[in-house]
Design a protein around this nucleic acid. Structure first.
Length: 423
DNA sequence: AATTTTTGCAACCGCACGGTT
DNA sequence: TAACCGTGCGGTTGCAAAAAT
């Protein structure tokens, strides 16, 4: 295909798939716009963060038009929502969160986005992944999806509505809870289905997988489920009851590095830094209009390990179509650390990276082909390890996760600083 | 140590919905 | 009112890393 060579040489063509589609037709010429697919690189992240910092969320298709970032709007939105926006909470779900998910799912089904609203810092994608994993695990073990070690308590009074978990009670006490659940009050097909189907369950029914009652078809991994909704917290006062073939996931500790949770070195990992080494960033706020921030529950989050409470300051709330006033230049004043010789030495590669990002943002193509995402991430990780105190042992695929993407924020900030320095 | 299997997750796709033209 | 556009949601897939053999 003609043009592919230039595509591959383009700064945005490090790896992943490039999709071409017909652009605007003007004067008879069809502009071929190439969109990249696949994993995001740090360079792209920087561009996107910088754009959102300046213009706010929303208008995602404009990102591609205005930054030269060859990603479709949907991809940008997804990347931002799931990985780049501040206050994201990484790591394994806490037992309380799991309880909320299980209870919610029992009541309303696969409403990941709504669950994400109840779990600040969590994304619908994350919850979806969690649920799919749970399904697989429990199916493999023949454990009912909703049942746990307290089943034998529930089995005696299976349809009794027990008290919600403390966490859920807290969530429900939030004034926004009722508003948020108008959706469900208006559309409770699951609930109605439950009302219609609700019959006294036999004690054994609660001890056996729905697989035993409903045929499983391979067309969907979900079809084996018994979708009969259950009352909140009827079954899951503790989600940790089932047995694991492998070690159970650590549910309370910050699992930034889940892959290492069972490795001997896991416990040797230093605590993730709670703040950056760029003090001016501690008060840095992105423009936020994501739905999850509307139900922000600092009291719940601050108790979480590995999450900086400073990262959960009240955020500016803007509708998705309203633009956020960009931070003033003085907000990104050069820090003394930037003039530190050791910092400058270790930031050479970072500077290259950022300059590349700037070139990309300004619509220029980098001369040299960018490294693959993995390599770039490693490079980035190496650089950052010298400038920001991050755990030294960190999987290459998880270089940026420290409560929230502090390092990405740092990147943007430093990009501004470099800009200041150059200009 | 090498290979295979399993797991977890990032990112994509298709569809739906609401607003605008 | 139909077409278009931007956005959001849920389901699915592909792959890297971890675990098992």
């Amino acid at each position: 295909m003609e043009g592919m060579a230039s595509i591959n040489d383009a700064a945005n063509g490090e790896n992943g798939l490039l999709v071409m589609f017909g652009g605007n037709e003007s004067s008879g010429n069809v502009e071929k716009v190439t969109l990249k697919k696949g994993p995001w690189t740090t360079t792209e992240d920087v561009v996107l963060i910088d754009y959102v910092t300046k213009h706010g969320e929303g208008n995602w298709n404009a990102v591609q038009r205005n930054t030269g970032l060859n990603r479709c709007g949907k991809s940008c939105r997804l990347r931002w929502a799931n990985h780049l926006r501040p206050n994201l909470k990484k790591g394994a779900f806490s037992p309380e969160e799991e309880t909320v998910i299980v209870d919610f799912h029992a009541q309303f089904g696969n409403k990941w986005a709504k669950m994400a609203v109840l779990l600040p810092g969590r994304t619908d994608n994350e919850i979806n992944n969690y649920w799919n994993t749970r399904i697989k695990r429990r199916r493999r073990q023949g454990i009912p999806l909703y049942a746990n070690k307290h089943d034998h308590h529930c089995s005696t009074t299976p349809t009794t509505h027990t008290s919600p978990s403390p966490f859920l009670t807290t969530v429900r006490s939030n004034p926004n809870f009722a508003t948020n659940f108008e959706f469900f009050n208006q559309n409770q097909e699951h609930h109605h289905q439950y009302q219609q189907q609700q019959q006294p369950l036999s004690p054994t029914a609660l001890h056996h997988s729905p697989l035993e009652h409903k045929p499983f078809t391979s067309s969907s991994p979900h079809t084996f489920l018994d979708h009969s909704p259950l009352p909140f917290s009827s079954y899951s006062t503790s989600p940790l009851s089932f047995t694991f073939q492998r070690r159970a996931p650590m549910l309370c500790t910050p699992l930034q590095f889940k892959r290492y949770r069972t490795s001997p070195s896991y416990n040797l990992l230093p605590d993730p830094p709670l703040t950056t080494q760029f003090p001016h960033l501690d008060g840095f706020q992105f423009p936020i209009s994501s739905s999850s921030s509307q139900f922000f529950l600092p009291s719940l989050l601050e108790s979480d390990q590995g999450v900086s409470s400073s990262a959960f300051q009240p955020k500016l709330e803007l509708p998705s179509n309203q633009f956020y006033k960009p931070p003033q230049e003085q907000d990104f004043k050069l820090d003394a650390e930037f003039n530190d010789p050791s910092f400058q030495t270790s930031s050479d590669t970072l500077k290259d990276l950022l300059l590349e990002a700037q070139a990309l943002a300004s619509g220029q193509n980098s001369n040299k082909r960018a490294p693959k995402a993995k390599e770039e991430t490693l490079k980035f990780s190496k650089v950052m390890s010298g400038t920001i105190s991050v755990p030294q042992k960190r999987p290459m695929s998880k270089p940026l996760v420290v409560g929230h993407d502090v390092t990405n924020v740092d990147l943007v900030c430093m990009m501004h600083m470099i800009g200041d320095n150059n200009g």
